[in-house]
Amino acid sequence: MSAALEITGLQKTYANGFQALKGIDLKVEEGDFFALLGPNGAGKSTTIGIVSSLVSKTQGNVKICGIDIDDDFSLAKKQIGIVPQEFNFNVFENVEDVLIHQAGYYGIPIGIARKRADYYLEKLGIADKKHVQMRMLSGGMKRRLMIARALVHEPRVLILDEPTAGVDIEMRRSMYDFLRQTNSEGRTIILTTHYLEEAEMLCRNVAIINQGTIVTRGSIKDLLRDLNSETFLLDTQDELPANFSVPGFDLRPIEPTCLEVELARGQDLTEVFTALSQAGASVVSMRNKENRLERMFVNVLEGAS
């Protein structure tokens, strides 16, 4: 089975001389839920731009579902659906027309396009907006419509560039559910995002790009396993004893009933629980202080710079 996306030695130098991509290699297997992470200006959108044909590559190869874009870009384009970062609608068109027109550009007749439009609008919870002009939709609704638009020709690969930027939590969660379901049906999903917990929650594999170079890649599970430490916050029922400590552990009281624990790899949090309980301050809840992927992301970028 060919990879959903295979990029080899991809370079992009803009007209002003700025080298956005310095020869990246990337492979995303079919059916994967993949995150492409990186700080602003790292080259994520340039990469997606090249895959979608909005940006011309300077050098390198891109294969979409085994089809080289230099050999048959038209066929390659049929395999992908793009959800761009910025809204790119004619705001005076109505919702249904946006989907029918997009389907038409892929050669899908209007009768089939209408049925697919109904299906995806229903799935994404905006069926009641079918005849509403785009300019009347909220930001979150526009985001969901962009997903419907990218899927209306039923591509094998869905590429989303910051899909949940500016979307409220409830709507974000419903989008996550939809994307998970879409992925479970066999469609490959490639995501760029600034919300690292989003990537950790949804994706199986990740690549981190920085200054036009892929600095690390692999399964999120494996990358997180490499973290040397994690920070937890423990909330206790009663106040912490004065000068509370556990030998070998890095502990910092944050509030009278909240303790920060820096847990090194190999250490067991149970020891801290037991010590707290014996000191009369039972733990009632605990949470990660920071997103683990965020920690890994910062570590990788610091290591690369």
Binding site: K78, E86, N90
Partner: peptide, 18 residues
């Protein structure tokens, strides 16, 4: 020009339409 201005021309450009 309107399609260029609001970027909706991208709908066409990313499609396989010759």
């Amino acid at each position: 020009f309107g399609a260029k201005f609001n970027n909706s021309v991208e709908e066409l450009l990313v499609s396989p339409t010759p």
